[in-house]
Nucleic acid binder design. Structure first.
Length: 961
RNA sequence: GCCCUGGUGGUGGAAUUGGUAGACACGCAGGACUUAAAAUCCUGUUCGCCGCAACGCGAGUGCGGGUUCAAUUCCCGCCUGGGGCACCA
């Protein structure tokens, strides 16, 4: 009987569906375990081999926990709102709901192929009204709440209003505008509009104004993704910043709790570091500077007040409101030109720019301690959104300031003596200050406090904690997202009541943008007539709380019943990529904290343990096309000519190919003699790399016949210049994507080798956490392993070969060593080493000719998480009853693997010279005696004296001479 | 530019807490079985040197230094691949 994986896998997949094998209940006397994959966006491109990596890992862990006696929640669903579906709708007129449903169907079919243990009865889709009703409901919770800084949690706005009526806002500093102060009487006297405007400054979900990428030519707002080098990706039109009314989430109020919460969850140190850096808490001071010949003042934020006497210039962000007031007439034109230039630049470009740019305003600030005038500059490297949008430039202590000063020939004051060498800035805090008036001779670290005290005393500044994190923009001028349950009346935002939810996304005629950068909803007269909000929510709205919905997916009266969330509690294991480090993973943590504060759930961190899967990269292949480039055009030969990679390498090395070389090659390589004249005799020959489908390349060798058929025969009449009779492609590791023709479809591999082989091979590739390029070569090894396993049970000619004989101690040792390895490694998510442990076990059992049920049955149970189909099939044969899914993981027993002696490596001065087998219970003295009396060791020690004898029990021996 | 992360044979990787570097596979080479092929099995496979082999010697975990009896592992400096940087999800 042969291993017929196609038949076996179909059979069991059907059986598992028929028997609801993966349905899980919210009530159980088993302990619970919740394993979750990061919410996938069902893209039209379908799954490539990179996607299932994490899914397989989580599936293995879920099944493992089930064998260990847990009630395991392992759901899957779709983050179904998003930009690509809308873009597709604009281009093809297909409703996003239609294309999304289609994509989901494909996605699901691909997943089903792989044999996952998802409980599909709990599937959710964020674009379904039954789901987004609750996204809207949570938005209303945010809208109706503020962050009470004294109790350190979200509370109902009612609490705030009650206090305003009694005390004004003395107890509650205004988070949206710290300059807002009012008494109880003033509050009561305010109009409805004034009150609402003030409340808006407190709400956790609030409306404000923010800059977007505005493309006039397309009449739309663009995502950062759609802007390339300052112009639109589609069409290449100019993109500028534009201020629009936007919704925000006040995540800044949660900054401290988001930092603190990291101490209570198991994320990698790298991940915690990224989140901490993103939140960017810093301790510093705000200092006020007077401006010469002006009544205005400028406020800078600095983390280094100790360097106040080293300030040689000021820099304000190009958006800073002071600029207009302080710019001198002589500088006006230059400043305006500079600001125009900056408007066309994205924030990223501004920060990444190596070329220093800036413009002098003509104005001077005055150092509050010595009255020295300090020139005020504008530069793109200062961002408006951080701190006060103005910094003090201290060239001797900050690298960027230093470069700026050098570039604009601003003289540099050295306040740190020898610590500054005139060439590089030195950001030390340990130098003794000089040139610093009353701070001379004081260590910088201590001077910080002294200056802070002095500025507070003088009333020109105060200590200030700052955060880099900004409030999260929460609206999009798009169609395919959740509508806001908000109505606008006389400029006041009124929430819909809960019983009006869900506010359904209406159908539209066209998906193109509304007037003035508004979203498509602004084009619907009925919508506008009802004064409904025309923005929609961003992609991360639905994904910020989906892990809760899985616990109670069909509940129509609550977002999630408290009993269900109390039972399932936190996600015990969350698997996904690091690309979500500072987006999704911060937003969902914040939402969880809000829901906790408001008493809707009983925990304030969503994910107890996070495992980051590495990215499977594509290994792209290139063919090299010969073209002729003149100054204006690129022309081609009448039939395309491709050169093997060796020629391209030469071309790259020398930067050009001579006409003679090419003519020689052409004449020499083609049997029928090259007769065509080279096109455009004035042009330069050049070689252009083109991505070629990796599926028609074997290793690096191009399959020329397939290539000529590729892309509907676009290159059917191509000619090739080969090396050693082969066309060798170039290669590069890049993101796996359709446009790079480097995707590999799991369906193809499952069809050829089976799901079990595919699952194990994905794991065998390397540690889940590590990124690596995909290479299909090697999958055969895993497939051979499964066939070898099969042969432990069935012989091609003899049929069944397993027996009921009892196992020998040698066989038990193999089994129990494997149990220990599989259990330990699975527990620490080291799935690549478990696969090799299975291989070693099967190799050893084959060598021992072991076909004993006692051993094999335990092996099958361990294999279930990894290769469930073959395990279930073989289990049915040897056991005959029950499903292996609910078997118990075999119990490791130390007694089977105890060894009495060990072959010690013996080194002389750290170099291994021989191995000696010594009893494990030998004393160090005995070991030394045995080792030193060894012939080989004596030979090595000849003429030398023993300096030290190192013996690590069970590990090694080192003789130092 | 800033933050995070990786670099070990021809290839993917192993070495879990500083203790035999290269487990397990792929590929390659040679062999067995077969009329032949597939499948399967066996042997070898880090590099260099000693004319082969055995044995042995030397080098070796991106590069350069350091700590240690001992470093892929710890420290310092550099080179380089990947991810993120706030409207892709």
């Amino acid at each position: 009987m042969e291993y017929n994986f196609r038949e076996i896998e179909k059979k069991w997949q059907k059986h598992w569906v028929d028997t609801h094998a993966y349905q899980v209940s919210n009530t159980s006397n088993k302990p619970k375990y919740y394993v979750l994959d990061m919410f996938p966006y069902p893209s039209g491109a379908g799954l490539h081999v990179g996607h299932p990596l994490g899914y397989i890992a989580s599936d293995i862990y879920s099944r493992f926990k089930r064998l260990k006696g847990f009630n395991v929640l392992h759901p899957m669903g779709y983050d179904a709102f998003g930009l690509p579906a809308e873009q597709y709708a604009i281009e093809h007129g297909v409703h996003p709901a239609t294309s999304t449903a289609q994509n989901i169907t494909n996605f699901r079919n691909q997943l089903d192929n792989i044999g996952f243990s998802y409980d599909w009865s709990r599937e959710v889709r964020t674009s379904e009204p039954g789901y987004y009703k609750w996204t809207q409901w949570i938005f209303l919770q945010l809208f109706h709440s503020f962050y009470n800084r004294s109790s350190q949690k979200a509370e109902s706005l009612g609490v705030l209003i009650a206090d305003f009526e009694k005390n004004g806002n003395v107890n509650h500093e205004c988070p949206g505008d710290a300059t807002v102060h009012f008494t109880a009487d003033q509050w009561k006297a305010y109009s409805e509009k004034e009150k609402q405007d003030i409340l808006m400054l407190y709400r956790l979900a609030f409306c404000g104004y923010g800059e977007v990428n505005w493309c006039e030519a397309l009449g739309t707002v663009l995502a950062n993704d759609e802007v390339v080098n300052g112009v639109s990706e589609r069409g290449g039109y100019p993109v500028v910043k534009k201020k629009l009314r936007q919704w925000y989430l006040r995540i800044t109020e949660y900054a401290d709790r988001l930092i603190d919460g990291l101490n209570h969850i198991e994320f990698s140190d790298a991940m915690k570091e990224m989140q901490t850096n993103w939140i960017g808490k810093s301790y510093g001071a705000e200092i006020e500077f007077e401006i010469q010949h002006s009544n205005s003042k400028m406020v800078v934020y600095t983390t280094r007040p100790d360097t106040i006497f080293g300030v040689d210039f000021m820099v304000v962000a190009p958006e800073h409101e002071l600029i207009e007031q302080i710019t001198t007439p002589e500088q006006k034109k230059a400043v305006e030109e500079y600001i125009t230039y900056v408007k066309s630049r994205s924030e990223r470009e501004r920060q990444a720019e190596k070329k220093i740019s800036g413009c002098f305003t003509g104005a001077y600030a005055l150092n509050p301690f010595n009255g020295n005038p300090i020139p005020i500059w504008i530069s793109e490297y200062v961002l408006a959104g951080y701190g006060t949008g103005a910094i003090m430039g201290v060239p001797c202590g900050d690298e960027r300031d230093h470069k700026f000063a050098k570039h604009f020939h601003i003289s540099i004051t050295n306040i740190i003596g020898d610590h500054y060498n005139g060439v590089d800035a030195n950001p030390t805090k340990d130098a003794l200050l000089s040139n610093s008036d009353f701070l001379d001779g004081i260590v910088q670290r201590e001077a910080i406090g002294i200056v802070n005290a002095r500025i507070e005393e003088m009333g020109i500044g105060k200590k200030k904690v700052n955060y880099k994190i900004r409030d999260a923009a929460f609206s999009r001028q798009r169609y395919w997202g959740e509508p806001f349950p908000i109505q606008w009346k006389n400029g006041i935002a009124y929430p819909l009541s809960e019983n009006e939810l869900p506010l359904l996304l209406p159908t539209v005629e066209s998906y193109s943008p509304g007037p003035e950068g508004e979203g498509p909803l602004a084009n619907i007269p009925e919508w506008v007539a009802k004064e409904l909000e025309t923005n929609t929510m961003p992609g991360y709205a639905g994904s910020s709380w989906y892990f809760l919905r899985y616990m109670d997916p069909h509940n129509e009266s609550e977002f999630c019943n408290r009993k269900a969330s109390d039972y399932w509690n936190q996600v015990d294991l969350y698997i996904g990529g690091t690309e979500h480090a500072v987006g999704h993973l911060l937003y969902s943590r914040m939402w969880t904290k809000v829901l906790f504060d408001l008493g809707h759930i009983g925990f304030d961190e969503p994910f107890r343990k996070l495992l980051n899967q590495g990215m499977i990269q594509g290994s792209s292949r290139f063919v090299y096309k010969l073209v002729v480039k003149s100054k204006q055009t690129t022309s081609e030969f009448s039939f395309p000519i491709f050169l093997s990679s060796v020629y391209y390498e030469k071309f790259i090395k020398h930067g050009y190919i001579s006409r003679e070389t090419i003519e020689n090659i052409l004449n020499y390589r083609f049997d029928d003699k090259w007769s065509e004249p080279l096109p455009d005799s004035t042009g330069v020959l050049s070689i252009v790399p083109i991505h070629v489908d990796v599926n028609i390349v074997d290793g690096f060798e191009l399959n020329i016949q397939e290539f000529q058929k590729w892309k509907n025969g676009e290159y059917a009449n191509a000619r090739f210049i080969l090396e050693n009779g082969k066309y060798i492609c170039g290669s590069e590791v890049e993101k796996m994507s359709k446009s790079k023709f480097n995707t590999v479809n799991p369906d193809v591999l499952v069809e050829k080798f089976g799901a079990d082989t595919f699952r194990m091979y994905e794991m065998f590739l390397g540690p889940v956490e590590q990124s690596k390029p995909w290479d299909t070569k090697g999958i055969e090894g895993v497939h051979r392993f499964l066939k070898k396993l099969w042969r432990l049970f069935f012989d091609e000619t003899k049929g069944k070969v397993w027996t009921d004989e009892s196992a020998t101690s040698e066989e038990l040792k193999v089994l129990h060593r494997t149990i220990k390895k599989i259990e330990d490694d699975t527990e620490r998510y080291s799935f690549n080493t478990t696969v090799s442990a299975f291989m070693i076990c099967v190799n050893e059992l084959s060598d021992l000719k072991c076909h004993k049920r006692e051993i094999l049955e335990a092996l099958l149970v361990m294999l279930v998480p990894y290769a469930p189909h073959i395990a279930e099939e073989l289990y049915q044969h040897i056991n005959g009853s029950g499903s292996i899914l609910d078997a118990s993981f075999p119990v490791f027993e130390e007694k089977y693997i105890i060894e009495s002696s060990k072959e010690y490596p013996v080194s002389i001065n750290g170099k291994v010279r021989t191995n000696i087998t010594i009893a494990l219970d030998a004393s160090p003295e005995q070991v030394q005696e045995i080792a030193l009396s060894n012939e080989l060791i004596q030979k090595w020690m000849e003429g030398k004296t023993l300096k030290k004898f190192i013996f690590v029990k069970g590990k090694m021996i080192n003789v130092v001479v």
